[in-house]
Write a protein that binds this DNA or RNA. Structure first.
Lengths: 342, 342
DNA sequence: TTTATAAATGTAAGCGCTTACATTTATATC
DNA sequence: GATATAAATGTAAGCGCTTACATTTATAAA
């Protein structure tokens, strides 16, 4: 691989001049610039990003830590972020933390060690204190789906509580009275917030959600299935099922169908997130729009601002979820058609 | 941030010794090792990966280029790769090429510039020649879903042709005679291979697929919908629809249902890939297992071997797809129940 | 103890760049 | 043409590590 030294030699200029045309951050006469460009071309020169970073203490890249590399949720998030950063010629370095403290920390250290200019973190296991300490360390970062009180201005959140509220409210408005819920892992803030929102809406309507009607899932389809099955075995009777996300909702729909329950006629199901395929499920899933893509882009915008003073646009820390009504919810069937077998 | 220099000073040893305990690649007495470790601990020292790479010309990271950061297919691929590399303490640097030549090249250069020790590439737009040139440049790489003749031993592929064949064969075995197909973009090798496989199976059965029954989609759900609608408008009559992937299949199922066609009673639909949610669609989607996760892990294995001489296990370049029969396909309804309205 | 040999540690060059500062060259002003 | 000023280019010191080689120290054999 050709180095800047060989380029400078071939072009008959100094290292500094070559560096200048690469970064075009200083005046270089057109004549020399052309000589340098020609030399680069001729040698097939590619700058060594590592050496650049070391010397300049900048890397033109943003570190992104997500919980998982798969799944519609993180997929949309990564895409939203990358799309916006790419526009500004910043690269995204992605790593994953698997919702596990050690791995999240390792991921952050990896990104810092890589001299990312700033970080976008979707962390779930690491403590607030750790993040506060991190904030001292000068490296800018933004938190997605997390609210650390002292770092509020760098946190971007969906109003999950409101989302849960909207979901339950929608079902209440349809006339439902008998509810069940399959929520996400209670230690995850978004999951518990959603659950709280649901309970608040129900409480407003004078309905208390029985313990027996609440299942804690893990945000995966399979836990939607098993969650529903458990409820079914418990012989709970409900006409509305609120799920912590779309994956679990799709699992629950499948399970319900297996038991011979028609959705939405016998059971209304609502999800959360509005993942890409929600509209292609049968029945098309009523859900809450998470706006992950927007959130991702906002994270990128904030980080561009913090790290490079680039990327105009208003900053926004709280996003409002929106109800998306499709076909998986309807008014409860008051004439008992014996949909629930014994 | 503390540097190795400060550690060496505090520990009262030389730079080299500190470096040695970091990399433990040379003998260091237990006494000094402990002194150094203590000093590191005390200073909160974190090695600067950038400086390490520059000095050692290694980065302990593998570059991964995918077409998109979202979607169940790439999600599984990224996860599979990262999971395996993580086991060997290698990091994954992910970037995306968006199936666009310039962006794919830029992505590769980014990864090379980052001094990745090797690359795993899912490239679609870049030419064979480009890849052959790249192969000269000494940086090891592996290609996923691509077959460059001269680089065959570094290519990992699913036998897409066979997959297409299996899909069509399954429907033929069920007794179908009237076929339609919504394939992926014809310029994508996997898409066209799948289509060839389908045609081969049909031909074996003496069936020629009419041009009018073939639609080219873009692998997205929406093109499944529009593809089906087009077929419907053309008043084509078919009892079996082969789709280039699960996304399009789910779109087509939704569209068919909208037209009042029952799947599978009036129309059998088969997908490809077996994405996570395929089993949660209604009806549960019959499809072809792509084994992306395995392919991802294999790519990681090969790259570990090439770059570090690590990661035992057999290498495998061609994976066999497998038919997964679920509920979206069944024998054709020979008694015409007038499912297709005029 | 002396000497040979191995183990532990130190020295210093260099990885490929950036950038403050110094120097040279061009341009404008009188 | 001389001088002041701005523009263009060059010089050289690092950035934080690794590593070949040199040196010192411990261990074993004689």
């Amino acid at each position: 691989m050709a180095t800047i030294y060989q380029v400078s030699e071939l072009a008959g200029v100094s290292l500094a001049t070559v560096s200048r045309v690469m970064n075009n951050n200083a005046k270089v006469s057109d004549k020399t610039r052309q000589k340098v460009l020609d030399a680069m071309e001729q040698l097939g020169y590619r700058p060594n990003a590592i050496a650049q970073s070391l010397a300049s203490n900048r890397s033109n890249s943003i570190g992104l830590l997500v919980s998982e590399l798969h799944g519609p949720f993180f997929g949309a998030m990564m895409s939203g972020i990358e799309k916006r950063l790419r526009k500004f010629n910043k690269h995204t370095i992605i790593t994953s933390g698997h919702s596990n403290e050690a791995q999240e920390k390792a991921g952050i250290e990896f990104l810092i060690g890589r001299k990312c200019d700033a970080l976008i973190l979707h962390v779930e296991a690491v403590s607030d204190e750790y993040l506060q300490e991190l904030a001292q360390k000068s490296i800018p970062f933004v938190l997605i789906n997390r609210l650390v009180p002292d770092l509020a201005e760098r946190c971007i959140n969906l109003d999950n509580e409101l989302g849960g509220y909207l979901a339950a409210k929608h079902l209440l408005d349809l006339g439902h009275k008998a509810f069940a819920m399959i929520s996400g892992p209670s230690w995850k803030k978004d999951a518990s917030d959603r659950a709280s929102g649901v309970k608040r809406a129900l409480l407003e309507a004078g309905i208390v959600l029985d313990e027996q009607c609440c299942i804690e899932g893990d945000f995966q389809q399979s836990s939607g299935v098993s969650g529903f099955d458990t409820l079914y075995q418990r012989k709970q009777r409900f006409t509305a099922l609120v799920c912590g996300n779309d994956e679990m909702a799709s699992g629950a729909m499948t399970a319900a169908r297996e038991k011979g329950l028609a959705v939405p006629q016998a059971l209304s199901i609502i999800g959360f997130d509005d993942v890409v395929y929600a509209a292609y499920l049968y029945p098309r899933l009523t859900t809450i729009d998470h706006r992950v893509l927007d959130i991702g882009e906002m994270a990128a915008t904030m980080v561009l601002h913090q790290a490079y003073d680039q990327g105009e646009g208003k900053h926004r820390n709280l996003f409002e979820p929106k109800l998306i009504v499709r076909d998986s919810t309807t008014a409860p069937n008051l004439i008992e058609t014996k949909p629930w077998q014994e």
